[in-house]
């Protein structure tokens, strides 16, 4: 059992090391490591896990790891696979963050990050565009988007409030729209 869990941990640590950026970047790596090399899940199962991992709270990579680990070795497996996938991040980022905060005052580092920040703006803008195309599917979704955007930009409210409001609005709208559709 211990050996099995160890194998699970290192398989997911490997997935963590090879994933840059997370989310979709992880899918081809999971396909190769977990489906083809280890045979711990089928293509279809992976697609299901991924779809649900995307629409449940939390980081997609973590959600998918928990799913596969649980399927293979039960609850303990779910926990071990998840710890495996985050392990490289903890090591690498802790090392880097220490180095970066030590050199942050050097002028060339400041210049480099001034350029990098522009790039970060562009990357986030691209992410918003991509997500928007997928999530704003009709006028009601567009209305939710607009209201939350105004609220998030111009008020100091916690994001938790927006999440709860949007979730409730989604349920109410779906129920009302379905009733309206049935009446017609």
């Amino acid at each position: 059992m211990f050996k099995q869990l160890l194998e699970l941990f290192f398989a997911f640590a490997k997935v963590g090391v090879m994933t840059f950026g997370g989310g979709y970047a992880m899918l081809p790596i999971l396909q190769r490591e977990i489906v083809e090399n280890k045979g711990w899940a089928t293509e279809e199962e992976l697609a299901d896990y991924f779809a649900i991992g995307q629409c449940t709270p939390g980081v997609i990579a973590v959600n998918t790891a928990t799913f596969i680990g649980r399927k293979k070795d039960g609850i303990l497996g779910g926990v071990v696979a998840t710890l495996g996938v985050v392990f490289p991040s903890i090591v690498i980022i802790s090392l880097l963050a220490g180095v970066i905060s030590r050199f942050a005052e050097l002028s060339w580092v400041k210049n480099a990050f001034a350029g990098v920040r522009v790039c970060v703006c562009v990357l986030i803008a691209n992410a918003v565009w991509k997500l928007g195309k997928k999530s704003i599917v009709d006028k009601w979704a567009a209305a939710i988007f607009a209201v939350i955007a105004v609220g998030a930009i111009f008020t100091e409210l916690s994001p938790v409030v927006f999440v709860l409001v949007a979730g409730v609005c989604g349920v109410v709208l779906r129920v009302l729209l379905q009733k309206g559709g049935a009446a017609k």
């Binding site: 986030i124 997928k134 955007a149 949007a166 349920v171």
Partner: peptide, 23 residues
């Protein structure tokens, strides 16, 4: 399904607000 129908555009909107701060 309904909850996520509302959550997805809201999540996009909140990332947009974060983008405004970074910009």
């Amino acid at each position: 399904e309904g909850a996520f129908y509302g959550l997805r555009p809201a999540s996009t909107a909140m990332i947009l607000a974060a983008l405004v701060l970074v910009v």
